[in-house]
Nucleic acid binder design. Structure first.
Lengths: 199, 199
DNA sequence: GCTAGTATTGAACTAATGTTTACATTTGTC
DNA sequence: GACAAATGTAAACATTAGTTCAATACTAGC
């Protein structure tokens, strides 16, 4: 997009202001707020330019509605998944988990119901997951053989690989230090779909 | 936060509606829009509840301004960094890169000027970075010994580990398949600070 | 210099929006 | 059942905000 060439200085000023507001997540401004921001004494000049900007395709507005302007071409807002500090037993949808923060997740996961966990131990280093990593977990109660899952064993949430063979179900660590677990009762909280690491 | 206990049904309806709008990135609604959404025939009932919600500390509003309500306690908007498809030579701040998308990045990087690259080759598998990963890169023109950097060699952007010994500078792959490079001209575009992988 | 298109300004107008008031209805409590 | 508090409704009011209009300056091209 080669904006600068097509926009007059005052149009660019207005456009940049709108973009800034949008990226900060604030409400779109009123015409008079824009006027104040760009140093125009009245709303009419801004109004004129807004029409121009809309004609050129940089804005979308609906007439007769307050603050109803939208900059075209900005990335949509990122969804945030809760970082749960401690996963509780019980309903997987319960809002009663300990939410210690929020983590933005990419569009791939748009439709999925996800939460984020900080990895504590070193039991999955063999799968490329280290302590301190954040894993994105899709909530589901079942998983296929070989998938990385977050499972609840007793009161503890653990990150393991699921192994199904015959009627048996096992949770396998990816670190030889740990031995496999074959729990009597297994509640799967979700499947690991993403991984974020700070370097 | 134990909302349900403290909010009447209609208050919760309004609160949820406001939260939904906010999380979708839309503009806050007008009192009458809320009324329509929750099935109230007029604006005054909603007005009454908005005052209650504000008293209870769930909202912040500034009177006499349209659409000026803000749900308290929502996570701030996530910053998005551009995914650059091809890094060009020249100014590191140039807006003329090929932006192929946007990627949300966590708060840690709030202040930094970042961009995101999709990893192409397998030259860094030894450092736990695979093809298909997305790396978050902080723009800077210098880096210390041992840091992972994105550097420009000729026209090509590559992901390597920087080695400085004496007066010499080398770019080291983390895969024995590749040999080190000691370029005559080295332009560092940034330092790798984060990594995202889809599993 | 002249003209056409563009940009700015100030004032006024109208629709939209927040607010208030008074009254009806529900809900909970004794 | 009676009362009080909370809630829902309806209509009017006041302010804000989007829009229009006429007048004026500014610029580019001839």
């Amino acid at each position: 997009m080669r904006l600068k060439k097509e926009l007059s200085p005052s149009q660019k000023k207005i456009y940049d202001y709108l973009k800034e507001r949008a990226q900060q997540g604030k409400t779109p401004p009123t015409v008079r707020e824009i006027a104040a921001a760009v140093g125009s004494p009245g709303p009419s000049s801004v109004q004129y330019q807004l029409v121009s900007l809309e004609k050129k395709g940089f804005l979308k507005r609906s007439p007769l509605h307050s603050r109803s302007m939208e900059v075209i071409g900005l990335p949509p807002i990122a969804r945030q998944a809760p970082i749960v500090g401690r996963v509780r037993a019980g309903l997987p949808n319960a809002a009663e988990e300990e939410i210690v923060g929020h983590f933005p997740i990419p569009d791939f996961f748009k439709e999925k119901d996800c939460f984020v966990l900080e990895v504590k131990g070193d039991s999955m280093t063999g799968a490329g997951i280290q302590a301190g990593d954040y894993v994105v977990v899709e909530r589901r109660s079942e998983a296929a053989n070989g998938e990385l899952v977050v499972a609840l064993i007793g009161e503890e949430a653990t990150l393991k690989r699921l192994r199904k063979s015959g009627g048996k179900v096992a949770l396998e660590a990816a670190n030889p230090k740990y031995t496999d677990i074959e729990p009597e009762q297994l509640q799967i909280l979700g499947k690991v779909v993403g991984l974020f690491r700070t370097l």
